Simulated scan of single mutants.
Amino acid sequence: MVKLTLYGIEISPPVRAVKLTLAALNLPYDFVKVDLMGRAHILPDFLKKNPQHTVPTLEDDGHYLWDSHAIIAYLVSKYADSDSLYPKDLLQRAVVDQRLHFESGVVFADGLRSISKPVLFLNQKVVPKERKQAIIEIYDFVETFLKDQDYIAGNQLTIADFSLISTITSLDVLVTIDHAKYARVSAWIKRLKELPYYEEANGKGIKELIPMFKKTNFTFASD
């Protein structure tokens, strides 16, 4: 019997990407909440599991993995009945990998984390306007990626969609986007929201994230 444990918090987009993947694979798992504000992630017991003290962290039969991109690729490679979520075809897989790196290096790092870390952890009230522009550029890229295709890496659902949707819907909490300008992005988000497991795996975490940012009263610097 598969014995998986996911360590994390609902508000974390990378954690939600793993939850989406686990749900798509219909894999049972235990979820252990990690109190980041209480610094539970730097306690000795957690550091033994993950010396980088990050979430998500996945335990599979006594083995520990971290970084959502590594985790979701591993889960599909080991447990999926087919390779549709992470194609074995080298060209198709390269496109999925590119989107995963885009999420990690651009959407999450340049977009979400560049705002959430100073606002939530450093009590910053005014965010440079360049950060807002970076998010708009991210939407421009995603709109381009979705040209002539239904999903982020082609015409089939992949782990790249799980990774991107968790972060893009989190960006929506930070910046009011004119979704009429991004028809493809809006259609893609709607398509993902129709997944039967979407609300539990991703929507719930978004709902928890909204009040956290609202109570900070942060603003973007004006011109």
Rank of each mutant, 00 (worst) to 15 (best):
V2G: 09
L6N: 00
Y7N: 03
G8Y: 06
I9V: 15
E10H: 13
S12K: 02
S12N: 13
P14Y: 11
A17V: 06
K19Q: 14
T21E: 04
T21N: 00
L22W: 02
L22E: 04
L25Q: 13
L25F: 03
F31C: 11
F31M: 07
V32I: 15
K33G: 06
V34P: 01
L36A: 05
R39M: 14
A40D: 07
P44W: 04
N50G: 04
P51R: 08
Q52E: 00
H53Q: 01
T54A: 10
D61L: 13
D61E: 15
G62M: 10
G62H: 01
H63Q: 15
W66F: 12
S68M: 07
S68G: 00
I71F: 01
I71L: 04
A73H: 08
Y74D: 03
L75V: 02
V76Q: 09
S77M: 09
Y79W: 12
A80P: 10
S84F: 12
L85S: 08
Y86S: 00
P87R: 04
Q92G: 10
D97I: 07
Q98C: 02
R99F: 05
R99M: 08
L100Q: 05
L100Y: 07
L100K: 05
H101K: 12
E103P: 12
S104Y: 11
V107D: 11
V107E: 14
F108E: 14
F108A: 13
A109C: 13
A109V: 14
A109L: 14
G111Q: 11
R113H: 11
R113S: 13
K117W: 12
V119F: 04
L122N: 14
L122S: 13
Q124S: 12
K125L: 06
K125T: 07
V126K: 05
V126N: 01
P128D: 02
K129F: 13
K129R: 14
E130Y: 12
R131G: 06
Q133N: 13
Y139S: 01
V142C: 13
V142M: 13
F145N: 09
L146A: 07
D148I: 06
D148K: 11
Y151K: 02
I152Y: 06
I152G: 06
A153N: 08
N155E: 00
N155Y: 06
Q156K: 14
L157Q: 02
I159A: 09
A160D: 09
L164N: 12
L164D: 00
S166W: 03
T167S: 15
T167L: 05
L171K: 07
L171V: 11
D172W: 12
V173N: 05
L174F: 01
L174I: 08
I177K: 01
D178V: 01
D178A: 10
D178C: 06
H179P: 02
H179N: 10
A180D: 15
K181W: 15
K181F: 14
A183I: 13
R184G: 08
K190N: 15
E194N: 14
Y197E: 03
Y198Q: 05
Y198P: 06
E199Q: 10
E200D: 12
A201Y: 08
K204Q: 09
G205K: 03
I206A: 04
L209R: 07
I210D: 11
P211Q: 02
T216D: 05
N217T: 07
F218A: 04
F220Y: 10
S222G: 11
S222C: 11
D223E: 15
